[in-house]
Structure formats: structure tokens, C-alpha cells
Design a protein around this nucleic acid. Structure first.
Lengths: 219, 219
DNA sequence: AGTGTTAGATCTACGA
DNA sequence: TATCGTAGATCTAACA
């Protein structure tokens, strides 16, 4: 997929410096990933293609883990009220991939802020940089799932007000309009299942909708 | 129901001063409310009584609106990326009732922080005090729904680190162990429906479980 | 009438 | 094996 990103609190400088290799890992995994789609089970749009968070998450994990990223790293017990684990970590870089509902953006951001202030170690070094990966607003998706433009606006407002100081790179997953080969996956249940029933590369056409939201149709 | 609360950033002093009447409204509504229960539709615990967010939300709205609280007050367009509205407001006091998943706590808290810093007016006066109402951890509930003890720990950690400065009173809804008459509601669908099919006061027994979580059984 | 968005509801997945 | 809690998935409700 294509990516766009925005840096907060000096993330760009950190990545240009000590964390270049960690960024390259992420960039390689994301830009070599095909768009993943699945069938919606929402009333009135049953069967229509929507962004597939299960497939996308799986693909990212399959890419990062062999590159030395630790997955689901436990949160220390002193911070257990902030959750059980962070998605990925390597050398003080924490990655959160977030396709769930929009409030997770501020949850992930603020708990990361505390991990940073407390110098919590997730992998080798104290938390120094957070990379948050989200999908673009262009994709038809489950309602209320977080999207890049929304996350961007929220983080920008927060950082202007100095609410958080941890360096964050917010990464958005995009796809150009037009024809695209996407990974179309059927799961063993219409909702929630992570068990692949069928998976195949299939061609779709992405066309612009009214505003930023697009339509995705099989060719 | 019984309530417990915890104050952050001077909320107690504000309530003892200018906002006594607004607090009395909320206290009266919450303490005169019966426990609301519904049937779970979760696999393996189908039909078991769980905390009913729909009924509880409805009861609170029915109590606050006649007391002069404005409901679903629109967020000004300059902050539209923070959402569409806040639950209730009166004279600069904003109430958020939150029974959805846990990340909404930090979403509601941090967006309230921005409303406070920007002196956003929701009802007559600039946002001066936030009251967040949640259920206690004792109740069987839908998975991952926010609970008081979790919210308490998160807000405490945040305020210790100075991440937010807006005065907040966090209010938890509790029920003593033993027999209780609760509002048992059947909705027109097993999930999501807000249309009451049947509603009746019914007696339940609340017994202590392993840790804080309790069991609730019909008598 | 159909679209789009947030809010709220609430499930399954998974590991301790 | 069953329980519990968070993470993630993803729906319906309601309103602009």
C-alpha cells in the first residue's frame, strides 16, 4: 500500500538519527503489503468490500516479527491498568497498529505518553518513539473505525496544546484510485473470525465518492 | 444505585462552591435509579444477567433533562474532529456517561481537556467541570466495557503526571451484595436494540465472585 | 430516500 | 478445563 505520515514532537529527527533502521522495517512491510478487503456483514451493505483489519494485522505481524520485532509485549505490572501489552517493539520503538474504534487513538497516545515519561522498556531500550499505523479515511470500513485524517487532526490539536510530548509518527495506509489487485479474504464466520476460509488476489476498482470516502467494486 | 466518586484537579472544591446544584441533580438521579439488567447474548453465557447500558443511559437522560440539562450538545465545528456532541451540559458542567469500551475514558478525558483549555461553551458557561459516570467493576458486563476501578487508576496516573488539568469528578455506580430489585429489560433484538420489549422490576441476588467481579442471579 | 459520521453496544479472539 | 481481562472487530442507533 501507499503510505503517508505525519510527525509529532520530534519524531522525524529521531527517525533520521538513531531509528532509521526501525523505520525502514516498517516502511518495507507496509509498502509491500497489498490492500486487504473482506465482505461487510452490516445491514444494507452485506457483502460489499470493506477494509479488512484482520488480514491487514496478520500481514503486518508476519512482516515485522521476522525482522526482529517483538509482538504483544507485556505492559509491566506497575502500569497494568493501562492494558496488557503493546503491539510491537524493537529497540525502544513501539508500534501500535490500530484499526479498531476511534477512541483507541487517544488511549494508545496517552498510555504511550506515560510509558515515555516513565521510560518504560518494552524491547531493549526505554520507550523513545511511537509509530501508530492506521488506515486512510478513503476506505469503506466498519463504522467508527479510526482513520488517518481523524487521527491527524486529534494529534495535531493535542500537540499544539502540549498535552503529549512523546515523539509519534502517525502512518496512514492509502491506495491510489483506479484498478488494484487486493487480497480478498473469506473468513469462517461473517463477523469477528480470524480463521481464513479462502484468500485470493482479486482485481477491484477504487472510485472517488462524494467526499474523501471511496467506493470499491470488483472488476 | 449507590455511588462512589473520586475528584481530580480541584473538582471537589468547585462542587463545594459554584456547582453544588449541578452535582445535586446528578446525585439525585443516580442514587434514585434502580440497577438495570439485561440478558447477555455472548457465547456460553447466553441469557445471563449483565449490566444494561441502554436502560441505564435512558434512565439517566430521563432524569437529567427535566432538571434542565441539555442533551447531546453539539461540539463546535472548530473541534469537529473531536466528535459530534457531549452527552449532557448545564452551566459549564459537562457530563459524560460512559458504558462503552474502555478507550472511551481517555478519549472523553482528553477531548474534555481541550474543551476546557479552549473555554468551549456547551451550556451558558465555559467548560469548567467534567463529570464522568461509569459502572463499577463488580457487575457482569459486556467484555471490555469501561469500569470505575480501571478509570480511577488511569485518571490517577494521568493527573500525577500532569497530563490533564481539567477538573473531573469520576462517579462509579455500585450496588451492595445481597438481594436487590433490578429493572430487567427485554429488547426487541438480542443485541444493540434500544426498543423495549418488556420491562419489569425483578429480584436478584448479587454474590461475590473470585475477585471484584460478582454474580447476579434471579431469585 | 440514501449517505456519511460519530456514539454506543457488544460481540469473538486470545493469552495469563 | 474454565475464568477473566484486554484487544480487536464490528455491528446497530440516531442524527445531520
Amino acid at each position: 500500500m501507499h503510505i503517508q505520515y505525519q510527525d509529532f514532537n520530534g519524531a522525524a529527527e529521531l527517525i533520521a538519527g538513531d531509528y532509521r533502521e526501525e523505520w525502514v522495517d516498517i516502511e518495507n512491510v507496509l509498502t509491500s503489503m497489498p490492500l486487504h478487503l473482506k465482505a461487510s456483514d452490516q445491514a444494507k451493505i452485506q457483502g460489499r468490500a470493506i477494509f479488512d483489519p484482520v488480514g491487514t494485522n496478520q500481514h503486518i505481524a508476519d512482516g515485522l516479527v521476522p525482522r526482529g520485532w517483538e509482538q504483544k509485549i507485556p505492559i509491566p505490572s506497575s502500569f497494568k491498568f493501562l492494558g496488557t501489552d503493546v503491539d510491537f517493539g524493537k529497540n525502544g520503538v513501539v508500534v501500535e497498529v490500530q484499526f479498531s474504534n476511534y477512541p483507541f487513538l487517544l488511549n494508545n497516545t496517552i498510555r504511550s505518553e506515560l510509558f515515555h515519561r516513565a521510560q518504560t522498556i518494552f524491547h531493549q531500550r526505554p520507550t523513545s518513539l511511537i509509530i501508530i499505523v492506521v488506515k486512510a479515511g478513503m476506505f469503506p470500513s466498519s463504522n467508527s473505525t479510526l482513520y488517518y485524517e481523524q487521527a491527524f487532526n486529534q494529534l495535531e490539536a493535542l500537540s499544539h496544546h502540549g498535552v503529549f510530548t512523546v515523539p509519534i509518527r502517525l502512518v496512514g495506509l492509502f491506495e491510489p484510485l483506479g484498478r488494484v489487485w487486493a487480497n480478498w479474504t473469506g473468513y469462517t464466520a461473517a463477523r469477528y473470525s480470524r480463521i481464513v476460509g479462502s484468500r485470493a488476489l482479486k482485481e477491484f476498482e477504487i472510485t472517488a465518492g462524494r467526499l474523501g470516502r471511496c467506493k470499491i467494486d470488483p472488476i
